[in-house]
Amino acid sequence: MRFDVAGRSVLAATGAVPIDRPEVAGAPIVVLVHGAGMDRTVWSQQTRWLAHHGTRAVAVDLPGHGGSDGPVLGSIFELATWISEVSDALGGAIHVVGHSMGAFIGLEAAAEFPNKISSLVLMGLGAAMPVHPDLQTAADVDDPLAADLMAGWMHGPDQKFGTHPTPGMSMTGTARAIIETSPSGVLAEDLKLCAEYDGAIAAAAALTCQATLVLGRLDRMTPRKSAQPLVEALGHANVVELATSGHAPMSEEPEAVRAALADHLFATAD
């Protein structure tokens, strides 16, 4: 579906269940937020399932990503403000599911706009997200090497082999294609925002809503131990550790992520 936020068109996948259908009126709104250089389709193993399991699922393309109008926004705080505007546009408080940069956005939004964010499920994040200088350099000049580097680091070692949970698909091939087709400069900008953001611990400490962290034990981009300061700052967070996931649990262990979402939403839905 398309909707407007601050006068700009946003593309979102809703699992092909329109969120204004009478049957889903009043169901919790779950907004899924992708990471750097990615788009809404990283959630394709969760969006349609959520839409058919008692929620209104809205997997957004961030401004300037996928099918959403640009320009890209210049800080995690601006993106968090944008998420609060998404909540306004959708007509109520939202649960945010965020991956990597999207997890930072969710965290910042929940700390800054507590009335608009009902709860958080965050995956593929650490207290900080330093970016490998070679990755940033390649992204800065739109070198396809950037897509190759990210696709190679994104998943746990199992995905060097397979088998993909969706028959016939290639996980590294898909990651590479999404990054390669993202508009020029978008990945470079996203990576900078991730590296610059230093508000995660403060946001976690200020959080009043329920949070679940889904952490891959084999994550090489944001290693499991880099999330520990966040876990401690959150105090009350529910932590789900996935044994074979790297940085992209929603693709690598889709079933476990669906289960974590169900547990989380069931526990926090009114």
Partner: peptide, 28 residues
């Protein structure tokens, strides 16, 4: 996703599919 009927997908065929996607540099 998963297998439900071998006209649509099959685990042995899926290995060949994923392998050829990888060799060609495709998404699937």
């Amino acid at each position: 996703s998963g297998h439900l009927y071998s006209r649509i997908s099959n685990p042995t065929v899926a290995v060949l599919e994923e392998r050829l996607a990888s060799l060609e540099g495709g998404v699937g």
